[in-house]
Computed example of a mutant assay.
Amino acid sequence: MTLRLARTLLLSACAAGPLAAAEKVPEAALEEARKASSELVTGVRSELLKAIDASGPLRAIVVCKYTVPEIASALSRKYGARVTRVSLTPRNPSLGWGDAWEQKVLMDFDERVARGEKAEALEHAEVVVEPAGRYLRYMKALPMQSPCMHCHGPVEQISEPIRQQLAHDYPHDKATGLALGRVRGAVTFKKPL
């Protein structure tokens, strides 16, 4: 870094004033976010396992494409919040791509798993101030598990019928090549405070 750049950054920081302390996340709001996230994970897992048991892994694509957004929408209405799943490697970029805050948290989750933390234990919550107001933002990591490997594992291990269906339904798919225990994505919860 040049001396001129360092001086500019220092002057900018001084002009902006002291950094505001992070606002404490209200415990009741955090518990609500955890509950909504758990309901989404439980509902999705239940529907996926039912479909796989009844018709095989190819049916899971239909569940993820149609049923999971319905579950997320119902929970969003129930909690008066945005409750959904996001990923750095979305299958459907129009639904699964996170905003800047979510992408930052997902990258942090990836780094923490790379350092040895377990994906299933990762969560992050904070109060953020946006132009539209104050929000509770919460994310819970979704680890890659065995049933997920049928559609999200290494491409060479995905069956040909599933590869063909994914190519047909999701021409911009980025959600393959993932390993067990890694972060597949996260449940995200955003609610006005």
Rank of each mutant, 00 (worst) to 15 (best):
G133N: 08
Q164D: 15
K140D: 05
S159T: 15
M144N: 06
P154L: 09
P143C: 11
Y135N: 01
Q165P: 00
H168W: 11
A167V: 01
C151R: 02
E102D: 11
M107Y: 11
H172A: 14
M107D: 12
M149K: 05
K174C: 09
K140V: 06
R115N: 15
E123H: 14
I158K: 00
Q165L: 14
E111I: 00
H150Q: 11
Q157S: 12
H152G: 03
Y138Q: 08
E123R: 07
L106D: 03
V129G: 06
R137A: 09
M139V: 03
A132G: 07
Q164R: 14
L122G: 04
G133H: 11
A175Q: 03
R134Y: 02
V127D: 03
G116L: 10
M139S: 00
Q157K: 14
D108M: 15
L106S: 03
T176Y: 00
M149T: 13
K174G: 08
P147F: 01
L122F: 11
K140H: 11
K174M: 15
C148F: 02
G153K: 05
G133R: 12
H172Q: 15
R163M: 08
Y170K: 00
E156I: 06
V155P: 05
P143S: 13
L136G: 02
Q157Y: 00
E117C: 06
K118N: 09
V129I: 14
C151E: 03
Q103W: 00
Y170V: 05
H150N: 10
G133S: 08
H150D: 05
P154E: 12
K118D: 11
P171S: 13
R163D: 04
L106P: 01
T176K: 09
H152E: 05
V113N: 02
